[in-house]
Simulated scan of single mutants.
Amino acid sequence: MSHFQQRFVAAAADIDELGHVNNAVWVRWIQDIATAHWAAVAPAEHQAAYVWVVTRHEVDYRGNLGEGEGVTAETWAASPRGARFDRHVRFTGDDGRVKVEAVTTWALIDRATGRLLRVRDDIAAPFLA
């Protein structure tokens, strides 16, 4: 499995009325690390030919994060099933505690036709190495 990491720090705009990172921000960060991983490891020809869309988010909130606090996000992908590609994401706070864990299902779309595609081995390989 090819793991990928990215750092996030909670800004004032990320904080809700309870004083911690809003759930919608966590989902945005899940998408941000997934797309950053794709951009970092997928060949340019794949990035030009394909786009991913989310079909499902499953998120477990285990802790809070306040303004100015940071997390290290780590993501990795599971083996594809047809057009589906499940991606795992774990956010660990500077205190060493897991704040959020998620499994997100992505589907592969052909940019030219807009059609759903099976995730071929050559497309999945950079994420599973």
Rank of each mutant, 00 (worst) to 15 (best):
A48R: 12
V51W: 00
D121R: 14
R111P: 02
W29K: 14
A34V: 06
V71Y: 01
E101R: 12
A48M: 01
I30A: 13
R120E: 15
E58N: 06
F4E: 09
V98N: 07
A34M: 02
P43H: 11
P43N: 11
A34T: 13
G70S: 10
V21T: 13
V21M: 10
F91C: 13
V59R: 05
F8N: 14
A44C: 02
G66E: 10
A12P: 04
A40G: 05
R87D: 04
A11C: 09
D14P: 06
Q6Y: 07
P80G: 10
I30M: 11
G114D: 02
R120V: 04
V27L: 15
L65H: 04
D95I: 08
D14I: 14
H57M: 01
A102L: 06
A40C: 07
W76Y: 13
V51F: 03
V103N: 08
Q5T: 15
V100S: 05
R111H: 02
V53K: 02
P126Q: 09
L18A: 15
L65E: 02
A40L: 05
A13N: 12
T55Q: 04
V119K: 05
A107M: 12
G82H: 00
G63R: 03
N23S: 15
N64E: 13
R115M: 00
D16K: 11
R62H: 11
A34L: 07
V9R: 15
R90T: 15
T72A: 11
A40I: 06
Q47G: 10
G66H: 07
